[in-house]
C-alpha cells in the first residue's frame, strides 16, 4: 500500500466515488473545492499588500525629488545651515536648522505638557479611580482626541496666546509663538498618552499588584515599582506615538507658531516648523522640477527620517528596560 504525497487515497475498502455519486464516509479528501476561502485569502493579502505598496510609493515619491534637491544643495549646507530662505530669489539659502529648531521647540513644549498630565491621568484612571469615575472620565478624555486640530490651532491663536500667556501669566509674547503652539499641541496629545498608557497599565495582571500589596507595599510603590515597569513598553509606545503626532502635526503650528523661519532660541519666540513650511509652501504654485519644489520633498524626507529614527530608538530602549510579564 503506498500513500503518495499528493494525498492519493490508500487502498481502503471501496474505491472512491465522485461527489454526488455517493458519499464515502472514510474519505480524507477535500469534500468541496472551497473557492470562498481562496477569495477571502486573496482579499486579505491584497489589503496587507496595499499598505506596504502605499508606503513604498510615498517613500519613493519623497525620495526622487529629494535626490534632485541634493544634487544642487549639499547635505552639509542643508543640515547645518542656519538660514532658511528658499524663495528669496538671488539670496536663496537652504539651511534647514531654523525649521528643525521650530519643530524641536514645539515638540519639546508639547511633551513637557503631555507626559506628566497624560501619565498622571493614566495612573489615576488605572490604579486609583473607582470604576464609576473611570467609566465617565475615559470617554471624556477620548473626546479630546477627536477635536480637529484646526480647532486647537484657533484655540491657541485666540485664547492661549492673548488670554493665558499675555493676560494671566503676563508673558511678553506676540500672537505667534512656539510656546502657545507647543502648549496646545501638548493638550492635543494628552489623550494619546493617557489612553494608551492606561490600557497598558490596566493590562498588568492583578496578581502582580496583590503580590506587592501582600509584602506590605503601599499603593504608590506598587504602582511605580511593579505596575509601571511592567507596562513600560505600552507607556513608551504611547509617548512615541504622541511624539510622532507632535512632530508631524501641521495645522496647530501653521496657525499659532508663526511663518518666519528663523533659529528659535527660546519658547516665546516666533518660529516655523518643518510641517509649517510645507503647509505654507505647497500651494500648487511651485513648478515641479524646480529647486523650490524639490525643497518641499527634502524637508518632507527629513521629517520622515526623524520620526523613523525616533521610533527605532524607542523600540530599542523599550526592549532593554521593559519587565515583560
Amino acid at each position: 500500500m503506498t500513500i503518495t504525497a499528493d494525498g492519493g487515497s490508500p487502498a481502503v475498502g471501496t474505491p472512491r466515488s465522485k461527489r454526488g455519486g455517493g458519499f464515502d464516509p472514510t474519505s480524507l479528501r477535500r469534500q468541496s473545492p472551497r473557492h470562498g476561502e481562496r477569495v477571502v485569502m486573496g482579499v486579505l493579502i491584497a489589503a496587507a499588500l496595499l499598505s506596504v505598496l502605499v508606503t513604498v510609493g510615498i517613500v519613493l515619491s519623497l525620495l526622487l525629488p529629494a535626490i534632485s534637491f541634493f544634487r544642487e544643495v549639499s547635505f552639509g549646507e542643508f543640515l547645518f545651515g542656519t538660514r532658511w530662505s528658499p524663495r528669496f530669489s538671488g539670496q536663496e539659502s537652504y539651511g534647514v536648522l531654523p525649521l528643525i529648531t521650530g519643530t524641536a521647540w514645539t515638540t519639546l513644549i508639547a511633551l513637557v505638557i503631555a507626559i506628566p498630565f497624560g501619565l498622571g491621568a493614566a495612573i489615576y484612571l488605572s490604579e486609583y479611580a473607582p470604576s464609576r469615575v473611570r467609566k465617565v472620565l475615559k470617554p471624556v478624555l477620548e473626546v479630546l482626541a477627536g477635536i480637529p486640530s484646526v480647532v486647537y490651532g484657533f484655540f491657541a491663536l485666540t485664547f492661549v496666546a492673548p488670554v493665558i500667556l499675555n493676560d494671566l501669566l503676563g508673558l511678553d509674547v506676540g500672537t505667534f509663538s512656539v510656546l502657545s503652539a507647543g502648549l496646545v499641541l501638548g493638550i492635543m496629545i494628552i489623550p494619546t498618552v493617557a489612553s494608551l498608557s492606561e490600557d497598558a497599565m490596566s493590562a498588568v495582571p492583578d496578581a502582580l499588584r496583590h503580590g506587592s500589596m501582600a509584602l506590605g507595599a503601599n499603593k504608590m510603590r506598587t504602582t511605580l515599582r511593579v505596575v509601571f515597569p511592567a507596562a513600560v513598553s505600552g507607556i513608551a509606545a504611547s509617548i512615541v506615538l504622541a511624539l510622532s503626532r507632535a512632530v508631524g502635526e501641521t495645522m496647530i503650528v501653521a496657525l499659532a507658531a508663526g511663518t518666519q523661519a528663523r533659529m528659535v532660541g527660546g519658547p516665546t519666540e516666533v518660529g516655523q516648523t518643518m510641517t509649517g513650511f510645507i503647509a505654507q509652501t505647497a500651494t500648487g504654485e511651485s513648478t515641479p522640477g524646480t529647486l523650490s519644489y524639490n525643497t518641499l520633498f527634502a524637508v518632507g524626507l527629513l521629517l520622515f527620517v526623524i520620526t523613523f529614527v525616533i521610533n527605532m530608538i524607542s523600540i530599542r530602549l523599550v526592549r532593554k528596560f521593559r519587565e515583560a510579564y
Binding site: P205, L208, H210, G211, M213, A214, L215, G216, V226, E323
Partner: peptide, 15 residues
C-alpha cells in the same frame, strides 16, 4: 500585611 505575608495560588513573581 508586613507582619502577615501571603503566598498565592498561582506563583506571581514580579517580572
Amino acid at each position: 500585611r508586613r507582619r502577615i505575608g501571603m503566598v498565592f495560588q498561582k506563583p506571581n513573581p514580579f517580572p
